[in-house]
Each structure stands twice: as structure tokens, then as C-alpha cells.
Design a binder for these strands. Structure first.
Lengths: 143, 143
DNA sequence: CTGCTTGCAAAGGCTTTGCAGAACA
DNA sequence: TGTTCTGCAAAGCCTTTGCAAGCAG
């Protein structure tokens, strides 16, 4: 299983800017991780990020990848998806959108914006506010 | 074979019937687990089921709880919820319904039926069919 | 009988933690 | 400098597995 290299959409300077805008000190490791993650819309696990970042040469440790991913989530630069109870998936697209999850293949694909429409929204429990809504359409391959 | 929204406690005989209807051999352990699980609508982890079943006296091993929960899910007697990536939550209500998840407290509450309405449904990827749709409304306590 | 099921303990995968050394402002 | 961050390895959790003994039909 090889990992194709994708040309980053953001320059190193742009990534550093983005981190600063979100109150994240741009250390070398964080910049490397953010460049790998934010280079395109993707759904990745911590393991994948680790592999991507250390593709050429070891740059970042496992602990730092987990630290940084958590940090980026808390700062709103990345979204966390709960799809597989065994591991967290990080989504570099922070715009509100939903997902198809292919149970057979494990593939995770964005639902095209505007094709899933909610007209009525439930009243929230007292004293709470909505942080986000997550819709997962579980699909399978036809027999 | 619809399940009432709030099913009453089931007798041992009723549980055995239910298991047989779903092609599950009703062993002592499975009956004990099913009685604990299906006695009411609830969201429980494997750990909780284990504790509930062995409340009075040890009856069932951890391995069997995991085995049985997986079996009940595959037979459609219980629904699996992916909410916390660290553990699976089992829902004894198999009717289609959605959830509020309180990020602060961990509380998981059903969305009242009919209060969340989807009018447009996205086209599925070619060669696939929808197995189910899961909506999780993430909420927090107001500051 | 014959094949499922169970239980124990050990292993497995993902994530977090403790703490010393390194990097940052 | 004082603080924050990093890396390593070990530990932690939830879950699965291997295999011998036990139960169901």
C-alpha cells in the first residue's frame, strides 16, 4: 500500500499564518503536520498523518502527532469524525458537511453540499446549545 | 415485528422467543444478556452490560458479552452507535431515531421522533444502497 | 455424538501519560 | 531565562483471539 504524494495547496508561510491566526505556536512539527493535513480535503487517521509527515525522513514522533491533532481540533482547524469506534478520523474540511460511510470497504466520502436537507430541527434539551450536527449515511455495495 | 417505544420488561420466555425468532440459539448467557439489554430502551457499553448481568452473581464472562453483543447487532436485535471512538455504545431501541450527545457530560439522549425531518436525501454512490442513516446532534451546556 | 458456545488469559490496536531534554519567546 | 513543546517508552483502555472444556440439539 503506497502513499501518493500530493502537492500541498498551501505554502509553508500560509500554513504558519493559519496556525498563528488560530493561536497555535507554529513549531516545526506542527507546521509539518498541518501541511500534510491541510494540503487537501481528506479523511485521515493519526497513523496516516504520522506516515505522511515522516514519508521522506522522520520528523515527528507519534506522541506529537496525537498532541497536535488534538490541538488542531480544539482550535477549529480540523474536524474529528466518530465513525469507526476503533480509531478517530480527522477531516481537513471544517465546513459543515456530511458523509457516506461504506461499511464494506471502509471508504468515507463527502455528501455533496445541498443534497441532504433538514427542514425541521429538534428542540434542544434545556440549558444546552448545539455545537454541531453529524450525519453519517451508512452504505453497502450491492450484492 | 415492531417494538413499542418503551417496551415493558420482558419475561424470560419472551426473551427466548425473541432470540429464536432472530435465529439466535438461546443459551443461558445470551438470555441473561438479552434480558438485561432489552428490558428497556437504553444506551449501554459492553462494560455496563457485563456489570448489569453479573450484578447478583457472576454469570457471564467478558468474552461472551462481546461475542453476544456482536451477534445481537448482526441479527438486528440491537443497534450499535459510534459516538465515542473509545468504545461502542449499544442501543436497545432498533427503531430509526437520532441522538443528542452532550459533549460535556457524555449524556446520550434520543431525539424525539418527528422533530428532525430530512426532506432531501442525497444520491448514493453508484452500486451501493443505504443501510441506515445516523444523525448525532452534538450539544454542550450553556456557559 | 458433533458442532456451537463459553471462559480464561494473553495479545492486539489505538491513544495517553510521565518525564527528561530540546525548542521557543 | 522561564515556559512550552517534543520524544521515547511504558502504561491504559477497549476489544479480539486461541484454545481447552462445556453445553445444545
Amino acid at each position: 500500500m503506497e502513499m501518493p504524494l500530493h502537492p500541498p495547496l498551501l505554502s509553508r508561510a500560509e500554513v504558519i499564518d493559519l496556525l498563528l491566526q488560530h493561536d497555535v505556536t507554529p513549531t516545526q512539527q506542527r507546521v509539518a503536520i498541518a501541511m500534510a493535513l491541510l494540503s487537501r480535503d481528506q479523511h485521515v487517521s493519526a497513523e496516516t498523518v504520522l506516515a505522511q509527515v515522516n514519508q521522506a525522513a522522520p520528523q515527528v514522533s507519534k506522541a506529537t502527532v496525537y498532541n497536535t491533532l488534538g490541538l488542531l481540533v480544539s482550535k477549529g482547524l480540523v474536524r474529528e469524525l466518530m465513525i469507526d469506534p476503533q480509531k478517530v478520523v480527522y477531516d481537513s474540511n471544517t465546513q459543515p458537511h456530511h458523509h457516506f460511510y461504506n461499511v464494506d470497504t471502509g471508504a468515507l466520502v463527502d455528501v455533496a453540499p445541498g443534497t441532504l436537507v433538514m427542514t425541521e430541527f429538534p428542540p434542544l434539551p434545556a440549558g444546552t446549545y448545539a455545537e454541531g450536527i453529524e450525519v453519517i449515511v451508512r452504505i453497502r455495495n450491492q450484492a
